[in-house]
């Protein structure tokens, strides 16, 4: 950094390329490993996994009880586990309680069930304010929480990751798990949104 006054600033893309090419040449990174990892996160992980967990909990009372008691095991039983999902806690929205999740220190998020977090989740405005005034932050998501509903904010850590079990939309009696899963949005599982309404 000492010579930064005499040279033009280095574009960040070049810094990344320099690191990646050096690590590959030294054998620290195997050929194709970076592409394989990125592919998993772009194509396999994402909110569609969490939506399956939610839909099963809505249709199977025993699974729901297990999910709320031991989220890690219940989620793993559907095949979703691993990096940044090693210890999962599921919190349930009810007519009396609305839950919302943040990581005030950085960006901890349940990767196996939700994939990578949206940019706003990782930024200072969300992290600083949702613990201070959650109702006004939720209003910026067009989510108005009535005064008689308690709002609980869960601060993630590098060890514990949270998933919100949203309320099942009205008018969905008898729907299949697949039909229900299609109503579950990413934000409804973070707590900054609700599910889509039944068509």
């Amino acid at each position: 950094m000492s010579h930064s006054h005499t040279k033009p600033p280095v574009p960040v893309a070049l810094r990344v390329k320099a690191i990646e090419t050096l690590l590959t040449e030294k054998g620290v990174l195997g050929a194709g490993v970076v592409d394989a990892i990125v592919d998993v996160f772009e194509h396999e992980l994402g909110p569609k996994n969490g939506a399956k967990v939610v839909a099963k909990a809505w249709t199977d009372p025993e699974y729901r009880s297990w999910l709320l008691k031991d989220g890690t095991a219940a989620i793993e039983s559907l095949g979703f586990s691993g990096f940044q999902g090693e210890y999962m806690v599921v919190v349930e929205n009810t007519p009396e309680v609305h839950n919302v999740v943040v990581c005030t220190l950085c960006s901890c998020y349940p990767w196996p069930v939700l994939g990578l977090p949206p940019n706003w989740y990782k930024t200072a405005p969300y992290r600083s304010r949702v613990v201070l005034n959650p109702r006004s932050v939720l209003a910026e998501f067009d989510l108005q929480i009535p005064d008689d509903v308690e709002v609980r904010v869960w601060d993630s850590t590098s060890d514990v990751r949270y998933l919100v079990l949203p309320e099942r939309p009205a008018g969905t009696d008898g729907w299949s798990e697949d039909e229900l899963a299609a109503l579950v949005t990413r934000d409804s599982m973070i707590g900054t949104g609700i599910c889509r309404l039944a068509a």
């Binding site: 005030t104 200072a124 600083s128 613990v131 201070l132 910026e140």
Partner: peptide, 16 residues
């Protein structure tokens, strides 16, 4: 500086 929970004045949410 990373420990910003509860801080005011950081600006609006960058929703996209």
């Amino acid at each position: 500086i990373h420990d910003i929970g509860g801080m005011d004045g950081v600006g609006p949410l960058p929703l996209e």
